[in-house]
Amino acid sequence: MISNFIHTTLVMTTPILLAALGGMFTDLSGMLNIGLEGMMLASAFTSIFVANATSSLLIGILAGLCLSTTLAAIMAYFSLSLRANVFVVGLATNLFANGLTVFLGVSLCKSKGTLLFLNAPKLSNIQIPFVKDIPFLGKILSGYNALDYSAIILTIICYLVIFHTPYGYHLRAVGKDPRTAISVGISVYKHRFLAFVLSGLFAGLGGVALSLPLKIFVGGMTNGRGWIALVAVVLGQGNPFGVFIASLIFGASSAFSNMLQALTDISPKLLLTIPFVITLIAMTVYAIRSKKTYE
């Protein structure tokens, strides 16, 4: 029971964590990426659709990442080169991804509801030998799919990159004080652009983690996860482990909502509000604790 809950929590955390890691890069570069939701959605549709059409997981994933990264690059170009308001471009990204996936769903699959992609290869769960047989812990540590594991590994890699490489130093410098960065020859434009591209890649992976394991796509299936990821970015304060813990809270609230749906007859609609309410509370508590009065 408890091990099941932890297992579900980690699975629910994966898409949020991946997207949040992406959002963290743009955040560190000093930009807020509102478009995570749209990037996730675009990749969720494209990856499962292409994987279904080509019967290849890898091609599917790459196609998904391609689209989400393209959206990210467009966002970067509009906000950095054309100096469009980054919030507004982010909203445009979300709206576009939403419209595009619905439109493509209708045009290509002739269906508006849930799209089933039964020909797509299965993203199987990996059982770690020996570990899986440990009672209790086996269930917690083993039996996740490759994306779940890679989310954890990527968290560690992100940490090393951000705090122990010149790139990480430059990225943080750009975000904290762009004028200083420029004065020592660090290109703000390049770092911000790259941060957007990275956020596109990570958010894309997050989208893949939504659709591939289930082999379905539903319009708007990200359902606010991009926004929740954005909150995780804020709460994580630029540290990948912080982002991980914040994502875990939201993963747990989703798992909790799922569990109650299975165990009680409370209306599922009401239970679905849990992750949003928790996110709002977490954000408010964070704001109160950091005591930044509104200036």
Binding site: L82, V89, A92, F96, N98, G99, L100
Partner: peptide, 10 residues
């Protein structure tokens, strides 16, 4: 509509 949204930002 999404295209308009984009363009309006540019």
């Amino acid at each position: 509509q999404a295209a308009v949204f984009y363009l309006v930002t540019a």
